[in-house]
Amino acid sequence: MHSVQNSGESAHVPSAWHALPDELQLTLSREALRRAAETLAEHAELLAAEMESGTLLDQGGPEALRLFAAVVRATNRDGFATVGTA
């Protein structure tokens, strides 16, 4: 149990994460990593589009960012299974 202090009060709150079965922790962790990878890829695509439109200075970056996005997505597809709607 962990002690949480709020406005001078302390309360004992069980750690919900540690209470979950290991398999569920692994499943949720993989889904979080999948979502993080997709977020990185989407940001790379957005930056590439901004460079192409002239909003950001282009120094050969759009294609490099798209390559990065493709690598993140390809690695993600191979490494993690998609999980329901966690």
Rank of each mutant, 00 (worst) to 15 (best):
G61R: 02
A41R: 06
E52C: 05
T55V: 12
L65P: 04
A70T: 04
A69M: 01
S3T: 15
A19E: 06
A49M: 05
L24H: 08
L20A: 00
L33T: 14
T82F: 00
E9M: 02
R30D: 14
A81Q: 08
A44V: 05
L56N: 00
E45V: 06
T39Y: 06
E9F: 10
T82Y: 05
G61V: 03
L28V: 13
V83L: 06
A32Y: 11
A49K: 09
H18I: 06
H43L: 13
M1V: 06
G54N: 10
T55D: 06
F80T: 08
A11T: 15
P62T: 03
G8I: 00
H12P: 05
G61K: 01
G60Q: 01
G79Y: 01
A32T: 15
L40H: 14
T27Y: 01
W17S: 05
A41L: 08
E9S: 08
M1S: 05
P21R: 07
Q25F: 08
A16D: 10
R73F: 09
V71S: 09
A19T: 07
L28Y: 13
D78W: 07
D22R: 03
V4D: 03
E63F: 04
H43V: 14
F68E: 08
S7G: 08
L40P: 02
L24K: 10
M1R: 01
L57S: 11
A32P: 07
L33G: 07
P62G: 05
R77E: 13
R35G: 07
E23D: 13
P62A: 00
G84M: 07
G54W: 10
V13I: 14
A86G: 04
Q25M: 08
R30F: 14
L33S: 10
G8C: 01
P21Y: 10
H2F: 07
E38R: 13
S7V: 08
Q25R: 15
W17G: 02
A49S: 07
H43R: 15
V72G: 02
T27M: 13
V83D: 06
E42V: 04
H18D: 04
A11K: 14
A86Q: 01
A64V: 12
L33E: 12
L26D: 14
V71I: 15
S29V: 14
D22G: 02
A41F: 12
R73W: 10
A11D: 12
E38P: 02
L65D: 02
F68G: 04
L65K: 08
G54M: 11
E31K: 10
A48M: 15
F68V: 13
V13M: 07
D58Y: 05
A11Y: 14
L28K: 10
T75K: 08
A16T: 05
R35P: 02
Q5F: 09
S10W: 12
V72W: 03
T55N: 04
L65Y: 02
T27V: 14
T82D: 10
G79S: 09
E63T: 03
G54C: 10
T75W: 09
T75R: 06
A70R: 07
L33Q: 09
L40A: 12
L24E: 14
E50T: 09
A44P: 00
T82L: 07
L56F: 02
N76F: 00
N6S: 11
T75C: 08
G79V: 03
R73N: 12
R30M: 09
L57C: 11
P14K: 04
G61L: 05
D78R: 13
Q5S: 13
Q5E: 15
T85D: 13
L26T: 15
